[in-house]
């Protein structure tokens, strides 16, 4: 009896792993394919320049002190400047903004060569770079779904159709 149980404990795992080896991989080819994030994803923070009233609440709320209020010549009040090197993407600034001037989107590709480039001036904050121009190789966006007890990868949109 114990021999049979032993053999079962050897052969069954082998069969299960072999089944996985011939099934479809779960990973995606990232710079060419990208997962679709859900609505309200807490990614890069951007600024609606005309809505900001310069109250500085975001700067005071930020736990990591990533936001600094800077003066801009020709404007009456100061505007937030975000250091993404310190930002932890908690988006408390987005939540506390009384005018809804700050908002977050699904872009997380913020890597730069120089550390200073991570400090986003209000002008840069209010002109967010679209995803297509950051990931130039992106061909399709994918969402993971469950169909009949298996994971399936549904193509959401091809880049060509989008453009």
């Amino acid at each position: 009896m114990s021999v049979i149980r032993f053999l079962r404990g050897i052969i069954k795992p082998y069969i299960i792993v072999f089944k996985h080896a011939i099934s479809k991989p779960h990973t995606i080819k990232y710079p060419y394919e990208r997962l679709m994030f859900s609505d309200g994803y807490r990614g890069r923070i951007s600024l609606r320049f005309e809505k900001c009233i310069g109250c500085g609440l975001c700067s005071r709320t930020c736990p990591n002190r990533a936001i600094e209020m800077v003066e801009i010549e020709g404007e009456k009040h100061s505007f937030p400047q975000i250091n993404f090197g310190r930002c932890s993407f908690c988006c408390l600034c987005v939540d506390v903004c009384p005018r809804g001037a700050l908002f977050s989107d699904e872009v997380v590709e913020l890597s730069v060569i120089k550390r200073d480039d991570l400090i986003y001036h209000p002008y840069k904050l209010s002109n967010p770079q679209p995803l297509e121009s950051i990931l130039k190789d992106l061909k399709k966006t994918i969402t993971v779904q469950i169909e009949d007890g298996r994971l399936s990868y549904t193509l959401l949109r091809r880049r060509e159709e989008n453009v």
Binding site: V17, H20, I22, S23, P25, T27, K29
Partner: peptide
């Protein structure tokens, strides 16, 4: 390649 597929990865590509 083979172990990568058994781990649901793709491996060298």
């Amino acid at each position: 390649k083979y172990l990568a597929h058994s781990m649901l990865r793709i491996g060298p590509l």
